[in-house]
Structure formats: structure tokens, C-alpha cells
Simulated assay, not measured.
Amino acid sequence: ATKIPFRLKKNEALLTFEDEEVAQRLIKMGEHTVDLDNKTADVRVKPVTLEMGVKFQLRVTISGKKINVSEVPDLSIPDDWMRDKLELNFYRSEQGGGGEVENVHYDKQSRAAVITFLTPGAANSFVRCTKYPFFANGRCYRLPVSQSIDVHLEKFQLYCGISKKTILLQGIKDPEDDEESVQDMIEIHFQKPTNGGGEVDEIKYSSGGTWVCFEE
């Protein structure tokens, strides 16, 4: 189900029914007289028009062949030499991970690199490793490493339309009772089959206006 925000204005109510036929029947009836604690209120039933929004899925893939390396030291050597040093360093399996390197993408400006191993799963040995030794110019640097994560946006959709199970009540005069009591009286009225109603799944009444979020 998609969670959809909706702006509820002053003295309005939203009712979501289990059966969409109930909601559609009440909308066709148009107006209802609701008993609010010895007072009657003539309310209008309107369809709920949803504002345009988006829904999508994120697919996250953790690479078994690539790792990200940051804080690469800024050495006074050509970029291809640095790539060679990185490849040689991460090829050394005795240091707790790595293997034969397929490719090294090095960006001097950001001091970062992406190491791609030839063997699938070689990057998994770095899951618990946050710092990895890097030897250059007679020094040992501890470089932050992490597995490469690819994020893909899928099933991107725009949605708008009219809710099938939810109705909007307008014209509720300022009642003297608190919101919860008014909400209960509205629910009792619209649960009765004699009033054209049915089983209410969700209800929200607001005396001052609010944002609500319901599932459609």
C-alpha cells in the first residue's frame, strides 16, 4: 500500500471504509444529517482527490568485486604510478584481503580510488575492515575502505486520482464536544447500514486542520 499525505481543513473529516462500494454509495448520496450530541449537522460527502506525488523502489546492490578507498596520500608522483601502487598494495592477500586486481580508478583531486578485483567475492573480505595499510615511499598509511554500493531507482511512477475507499466530510459546524467525541459520533453514524454506511477502517476528524497520512 502507498502512504499518501492529505491536507485536512478545519472541521473536516476523513473516513476510510473496508469496502469501496460503501464509500462510492455515500458519495452518490451527497448529503447526510449527522446527530452530534443532541444537535444535527448537515454534512456534505465529497470524494478525496489525491495530490500528485511519486512512488518508487530503491534497489541497493553491494558489490562483491569493488571497494572504495579514500584519503589516498597526495604524493608527488604521476597518476599512473599511484594506480600501480594501489594495484600492487591491494593485490597482497597476506594483508587480510584483496586479490588479483582487474581495474583501478583513481581520482587525485578527491584523493579517492575504486579498486575492482578480478574474482567475484574478493571485496567481501573488507566487510569488517575500516582501515587498510597502504605502503608508499617508505611509509605506512591507514586508508579508509568500504564496499562499493550501487543504488538504482526502479518503478518510478507519478500518481494522482481519487481515492476509492475514502470520503471527505465537509460542513461540520463548530461542535461543542472535543475532537475524539465528535469523531466517535461520526463513526457511529457512518457504520450503520441504515444510513448507507458500513465498516469503518480509519477515521480522522480535525477541528483546526491538520495533515494526515493514509494508505491507499
Rank of each mutant, 00 (worst) to 15 (best):
K3Q: 15
I4D: 08
N11I: 14
L15Y: 09
E18F: 15
E18K: 02
E20Q: 09
A23F: 12
L26T: 10
I27R: 13
D37I: 06
K39L: 06
R44T: 15
V45H: 02
K46P: 14
T49Q: 02
M52L: 00
G53C: 14
G53N: 03
Q57N: 08
R59T: 14
T61M: 01
N68P: 07
D74I: 10
D74C: 03
L75I: 03
S76M: 02
I77N: 00
D84G: 05
L86Q: 06
N89T: 09
Y91F: 10
Y91K: 03
R92A: 10
G98T: 08
E100D: 15
V101G: 09
N103F: 14
D107S: 12
Q109I: 06
S110V: 01
A113Y: 07
I115C: 05
A122M: 05
V127P: 08
V127E: 12
R128V: 13
K131G: 10
F134H: 04
G138F: 14
R139A: 11
R142I: 05
L143S: 10
L143F: 10
I149P: 05
V151Y: 04
K164D: 13
I167L: 00
L168A: 03
Q170M: 08
D174A: 14
P175S: 12
D177H: 03
D178I: 05
S181A: 15
D184H: 14
I186H: 07
I188V: 12
F190V: 04
Q191W: 06
T194V: 11
D201T: 11
F214W: 09
